[in-house]
Amino acid sequence: MPSDDTIYAYAVGRTRALEKRLLEKSQIERMIEASSAEDVIKVLSESDYANALADLTDIYDFEKVLQSELQKSLELIKSISPKPELIALMALRYDVHNLKVIFKAKYLGIKSDLIVPAGTIAAPRLQSAVDEEDFRDLPDRLRKACEMITEGFPVSRDPQLIDINLDQALFEQLLHDAKRLNNAYMEGLFSRQVDLINLKTLVRVKRMGLDREFLKKALISGGFLAHDRLTVFIDEPLESLITGLSMSQYSELAAEGIRDWIDKGTASRLEKLADDYITGYLKKGKWSPFGVEPLIGYLWAKEIEIKNIRLLMVGKINKLPSEAIRERIRDVYI
């Protein structure tokens, strides 16, 4: 029977063609083996990035190219999606980034050029909202967070509060909207992201030597792992966290990533595995022929791809050994 989901037929068809242009494993591998940043650019010039890179005069400007590529994909997917409000959720974090920048710039009394134009709300509107402390135009959760910041910051003057409040509000808003738009797939995505962030936060707070009270404030709600379950580990060795997670869906990730963190003192493995975990989750929806899943999957894939290119560029410019780059390269979506 004709159902609602076939409205995605065009968008999914188009996304399939776009997916094909994502970098393949073999191309990533060639870039890892490249001897310099110039060689990385050379490999990229044979890919979908050729046009964008043609204007690149200074190799150190690659960040701008990546940012604009990401933004282009976001806009394209939004324009072909029959429900752009779902895709807009994927851009909400740029609004949050912009809010953080605007707040910090305001309290420092400086002008900042760190605004990213990819958000859903125009930056000047955010700017005037912060200037006039009138956040009525913002989504509900973000508005509350902004009000908390304008009240709390002048007292505490702790910039971390700005970030933590806005990050929490971001995910609350995302989960709330995904639920409102009746999209279990995206709800699942955001909940998993929250869990992974919380796991990393737990280990990081522990490493910083801060206490349970601080952790409680820093954790984001909306994940599958309850906060009470996480906070108990602050006073226990990290090994017990691995056992504690062994019954959850994150058991493998914890066993490998947290073990690596304990042994080598670096979170790089866990961070890579966390991204791969999300990729794995999104891959499950990749072949759904009708529905928003392939679109979201594509956007995530693009994000991961850009992360990989950034890693390659920064790595090659600074002459990091290929091995150090390879172990941080995220799995590709295709």
Partner: peptide, 17 residues
Amino acid sequence: ASIYPYGFADTSAELDT
């Protein structure tokens, strides 16, 4: 206020170290 002036959601743990 700790020495870390940022939140945890979009920063890497390597920055902490």
